[in-house]
Each structure stands twice: as structure tokens, then as C-alpha cells.
């Protein structure tokens, strides 16, 4: 008798688990549970507006009146809309020129700040200023700088230095306004680029420069063969982000020109807002906003894969 009971006790199963315990033991459930808070936030604050925008772009909704589904009608009418295509063109131009400007000046500034300058911390703080000031405020400042009568630039050039006998008309004609906006955007974007690249520069060990110096590299060769390649990873990330920010810029343009004169400085974002809210054509505005998506995706891909990860950064197991 006892001989049979002993083994059965030794091999006794664990008590049957409740369904709750089983549930919490299952990996897929746990993964889903842990992701819930984060994905919940994303869904509420990103996916929902995005989805709503996509849906609105397929309807003829106006402010105060729920619309009907109209298929691709909004997009088809945009296709024949010269103002829309102008906005697309200017957005691309604005992004390309402003991003190049930001990166050239930002890199230059980062290289300067990476030296042992007196008042280094102070200078770095100053450089960050355009980034810290809310864009709307700095836009208003720029608006004054570009004012036809009260512009400080005109004042200095005409009344102080006498290099010009006429006040500049920064915002009065299309191309002047376009370049003025690009200048303001570059000014605001430099800190981000400079500080990011400065962080990148500081990860490069000084001994590499010393080794290169002994190897006979000149200043330019050190920059080209050591700094640039080692900066590439962080540069590509900064470039991607900068392109995204610039392409979808709204505040600066809307605060300074509101798209004028003659719709010449509309970015896609400002045009979308213009049509949707003041123009109350929600459906059409949404369609313009949605048509930014392919451009943004393309730009991201180019930046990220074009100058992205290098082989030397990857793990040690692949040769």
C-alpha cells in the first residue's frame, strides 16, 4: 500500500492553475499588455487624427456641415490647381535650400564650438536661443525685421551705413518674400543642427586626430577623412529630422506672410490650413495635408538610407 503512495506523492502535479494565472503566463498577452499604454497614447493622439485626416480628405466636409464621401474628387481637383502646385514647388525649394543652409552653417558653428573657446558654455547657450524662443514670437520678430517701414536691416543699410538709398521690400514681391522666409527658417533651424552635430563631434576620440596628425594629415584631410565619416551616422539622423521639420513647417510662414503675396509663399501646410479653416473647406484642406505624406516618406527614405548606417558600425560578427 505505502509502496504505491510514495511515488504518486513524489510526482504529484502542481495544483491546476487558474485561468488568470495562465493568462499572465502567456507571452503574447503580456507583450500586448505592456504595449497597451504606449500604443494607446499613439492611437489617441496620432493614429486617430491621421485617420480622421485621411477620411476627411475623401469627403466634401465643410466647417459646420458633415460631408459625404466623394472618393478621390478632392485630389483630382487639386491636380488642376495651380496654387497647389506652386505650394508643392515652393515647399520642396524651401526644404532643400533651408536644409542645406542649416547644415552648412550648423556644421561650421559646431566645428567652432568644438574648439576650446573662451566662454564656451555661454556661447553654446547663446546658440540655442533661436531654438528655445517659441517660433511664433521669433516669427513676429522677423516680421518686424522684414517690415517695409520699420525694418532694422533697412535702417542700418540706409540711414547708418548709407550703402543703399532705398528701404528694402522684403515681403512685397514673391521671390523676395520666399528668400526672406528661408533666411528666417535657417536662423531658427541652426541651433538644432549645431548642437546635434556638436554632440556628434564630441564622440570622436581626440586620439584619432592625433594619430592622423602624426600620419601627416592636413586640417582639411582630417576633416574629410576622419570627421565627416565619423559624423555621418548622427548627421543622417539630424538631416532626416530637419527635412521633416522643414517640409512640414507652418508657424514661421503663417506668422510672417500668411502665404502672400499672391499665394507665392504658401507651403503645403499653410495652404492646407488656409483652405480648411479660414476657407472652411475641410475636405480639400485635408487632401492637401494628406498629399504631403508621400513626399515626407520619400524624403525620410532618402535621408535615412542614403547616408544611414555604415558597415563599420555594425556588429562584429559580419565581415
Amino acid at each position: 500500500m505505502s509502496a504505491t503512495t510514495i511515488p504518486s506523492r513524489a510526482f504529484r502535479e502542481r495544483p491546476k492553475e487558474s485561468w488568470l494565472a495562465k493568462l499572465f503566463d502567456s507571452k503574447p498577452f503580456l507583450v500586448a499588455l505592456c504595449l497597451l499604454p504606449c500604443s494607446g497614447l499613439l492611437i489617441v493622439f496620432m493614429t486617430y487624427p491621421l485617420g480622421l485626416g485621411l477620411w476627411l480628405s475623401l469627403t466634401d466636409t465643410t466647417i459646420g456641415q458633415a460631408g459625404d464621401f466623394v472618393g478621390l474628387d478632392n485630389f483630382i481637383s487639386l491636380f488642376d490647381d495651380q496654387i497647389f502646385w506652386n505650394a508643392v514647388g515652393y515647399t520642396i525649394f524651401y526644404t532643400a535650400v533651408a536644409t542645406s543652409g542649416k547644415f552648412m552653417l550648423g556644421l561650421w558653428l559646431a566645428l567652432l564650438l568644438n574648439h576650446n573657446l573662451p566662454l564656451k558654455a555661454f556661447l553654446r547657450a547663446i546658440v540655442l536661443l533661436p531654438w528655445i524662443v517659441p517660433t511664433v514670437l521669433s516669427s513676429i520678430a522677423w516680421w518686424w525685421i522684414y517690415d517695409p517701414q520699420f525694418s532694422i536691416v533697412s535702417y542700418v543699410a540706409v540711414d547708418v551705413l548709407h550703402v543703399s538709398d532705398q528701404y528694402f521690400d522684403f515681403l512685397g514681391s514673391p521671390w523676395a518674400a520666399r528668400w526672406s522666409l528661408i533666411a528666417a527658417n535657417i536662423w531658427r533651424g541652426i541651433p538644432f543642427v549645431a548642437i546635434t552635430l556638436l554632440a556628434g563631434l564630441q564622440t570622436i576620440p581626440p586620439s584619432l586626430y592625433e594619430a592622423a596628425l602624426l600620419d601627416g594629415a592636413s586640417g582639411w584631410q582630417k576633416f574629410r577623412r576622419i570627421t565627416v565619416p565619423l559624423l555621418m551616422p548622427i548627421l543622417s539622423v539630424a538631416l532626416t529630422l530637419s527635412v521633416l521639420f522643414t517640409f512640414s513647417d507652418f508657424q514661421l510662414v503663417y506668422a510672417i506672410t500668411r502665404g502672400g503675396p499672391f499665394n507665392s509663399t504658401h507651403l503645403m501646410a499653410t495652404l492646407a490650413f488656409q483652405r480648411a479653416i479660414p476657407g472652411s473647406q475641410l475636405g480639400e484642406g485635408a487632401a492637401i495635408a494628406v498629399s504631403m505624406i508621400p513626399f515626407l516618406l520619400l524624403a525620410t527614405m532618402v535621408c535615412f538610407f542614403g547616408v544611414g548606417r555604415r558597415k563599420w558600425q555594425q556588429g562584429g560578427d559580419n565581415d
Binding site: L208, E210, A211, L213, L214, I226, L230, R310
Partner: peptide, 20 residues
């Protein structure tokens, strides 16, 4: 200048160029 001195140095941390 260092490069004119015709010397070569091996650093404690080797200072190899990681991207080459």
C-alpha cells in the same frame, strides 16, 4: 610640425580609425 618629424606612434588605446 609632428608630421615632419618622421616618427610613428602607437597609442595606448590604439587610436585605430573605426571607419576604415
Amino acid at each position: 610640425a609632428p608630421k615632419e618629424r618622421d616618427i610613428a606612434m602607437v597609442f595606448q588605446n590604439y587610436a585605430l580609425y573605426p571607419h576604415m
